[in-house]
Design a protein around this nucleic acid. Structure first.
Lengths: 342, 342
DNA sequence: CTATCAAAAGAAATCGATAAAATATTTATT
DNA sequence: AATAAATATTTTATCGATTTCTTTTGATAG
């Protein structure tokens, strides 16, 4: 019933606990015969060194804390998967928390884990935190010497590693792509106006238009509060009153809403109406028609963040280096919601 | 830089560490004045008792391990959310692992965490584990005295608490619902023939037909291997060669595939073709038309599992009780993929 | 002025491991 | 046989807390 300890083994063979410890760690100080019998016994009885004792002694836990705004979001789930894979491969456990976009929950979580539970953090800011611009909890953690790697929704002024999407360039080149397909009346539909990543995408969109000397139609920049879930109601009148023939959306939900509205208004996707969405999740693969996306490679972002953090923890080369921002390039995944209309 | 310990505080006030410990725990043995100054100092300097030291001493970690087959699956993400919420409310942390439907990964994970890292497990079996029917790793854990709560994909013969969906009854009554809407040619599309939950749903489907004296058409029981991702290719010829006017699907992906195929073959959903899917996730809410579903309440399942586990850990009433199986009832969420055609 | 008792604080054991320092035991060397 | 060197094992301190058992201090009673 009770788990086997080093003490039990010591008693079994009438030796001291340090002999057992050294034997199990294959120390040269212990005779081969002693080592063999102890190791054999340990294996047969499924001995496992106590995690908390080890962590206490070594002052590290081999576990990393990950704080995610929303696990129901496919992109974040992908990131999580990437983190998990790398962490596991390198022998790390993951303690995960969902901030639910709440500042308080984010702070609580970080405080709760700042007691030696974890060796480092991987996190993406809650929406509330972004709008509050209050990063004290993170500053404290970093100042305390706990490595932090932020991803996707990062804070400009924090001194820590970051892994981000090239939001500006992606949006810009995607607009270029739409233009090449023959579109000029490109709407920008965003549910992220309150996030830095959303603003960057919008700037990229504007730059993309500028690249091709397309005049900006302010009515076609549509920022929908994410809390307002029925995007279609908002989009319908706008699409009706403007000549729109393509959409760049910041996420799949509003891309699908845009597509539905366009179809309802009699447009054919992709024959005369194109839609491209950021992220590349499950909705895009199941929509009708299937959606062309700007793939953000969530899994790669997660894996990169985890690599980075663990390298720092194990003080590889990164150890002394200053904080760095790693940009993960996007890819355009062409499916059936876009078409060359020239 | 280094985190404050009880020792540091003791040095600060020239008292012993046990005085500090008692003071922080508000013991009657310590004078009010001493307690006050120590507590004040601890608070100001953000003292937090070391997690590993506490866990070692108390022989419990206040963390639970959750093993999930696939985090990209919306249902599991919902369960996770439910577990996380309850765990957090009750002061527990969560170490999470994705088994990726792999038996080996599941075993490894459980072994890795069976060293005092966690107080108990919440888990849903990997597909591979189900087909192997090899539960030794779980038996060992349970025998070792670590409480386990299984959910959704459970193992019949393991002596532990379980939280499941009423798969049989749900499928049966859903068939009844379709019949009431005027459908007789109901296809059953499953991607879970290899899972117990899938088989139960199929049995429920058959029972539902029997309830209404509908003869079973074996061609309409369509089991698609989950690894085969292009469901549409399989469904199209079957739908073409049979008179089908409704579908009960075991998950959203194949429900959407069925809907697309039906639409392609000229049926109108829901005017003359209805589709109902198990689970109630993001795909159902974004399909066109939006899908009627048998909602499984993933979050509630997760919350229930967590409550159960924590109650056992803290030996509330459940402590001595034998293992129990809790059934979470489903609800029919009517959207726009079903219609009364009578 | 000492005996008794309560209050306050400290010493030491413990949780389960590691590791440095200290012994004990063999083996080799002259 | 004496001594040095190599090998094997034990003792003890440590990680950071809690807790039981002691000790110290001071007050009050006799």
């Amino acid at each position: 019933m009770k788990r086997l300890t080093i003490k039990d083994i010591a008693k079994e063979f009438n030796v001291s606990i340090s002999t057992v410890s050294k034997a199990l760690n294959d120390s040269y100080e212990i005779s081969v015969s002693t080592k063999e019998k102890i190791q054999k016994y340990a294996k047969e009885n499924n001995y496992k060194p106590n995690f908390n004792a080890l962590s206490l002694k070594n002052r590290k836990t081999k576990t990393i804390g990950i704080v995610i705004p929303n696990m129901l979001n496919y992109f974040f789930a992908q990131v999580f998967k990437g983190v998990e894979k790398v962490a596991n491969d390198r022998g790390y456990k993951i303690i995960s928390c969902i901030s639910n976009e709440s500042f308080d929950k984010e702070v609580e979580t970080i405080e709760m884990l700042s007691n030696g539970s974890i060796d480092g953090f991987i996190l993406s800011l809650a929406e509330e935190t972004v709008s509050k611009k209050d990063y004290k909890h993170l500053k404290d953690v970093i100042h305390n010497g706990t490595p932090v790697v932020m991803f996707d929704r990062v804070a400009e002024n924090l001194e820590c590693d970051k892994v981000v999407t090239d939001n500006f360039d992606s949006a810009r080149s995607t607009v270029g792509h739409l233009v090449k397909l023959g579109h000029k009346n490109i709407a920008f539909v965003s549910s992220m106006a309150n996030l830095d990543i959303g603003r960057r995408r919008q700037l990229g969109y504007l730059k993309g238009l500028e690249d091709h000397q397309i005049k900006v139609n302010k009515d076609l920049i549509i920022n929908i509060d994410d809390n307002y879930k029925n995007y279609e109601k908002i989009l319908e009148p706008i699409f009706k009153n403007n000549t729109v023939n393509s959409v760049l959306a910041t996420d799949e939900s509003c891309a699908i809403a845009a597509m539905k509205v366009a179809q309802k208004l009699g447009h054919k996707v992709p024959e005369n109406f194109s839609v491209i969405s950021f992220s590349n999740g499950i909705l895009a693969r199941h929509s009708n028609p299937r959606m062309t996306t700007v793939s953000q490679h969530g899994e790669i972002m997660g894996a990169t963040a985890a690599e980075r953090l663990i390298n720092r923890l194990e003080n590889k080369s990164e150890e002394k280096k200053n904080a760095e921002t790693i940009v993960i390039k996007t890819d355009l995944v062409e499916r059936n919601s876009t078409k060359n209309i020239l």
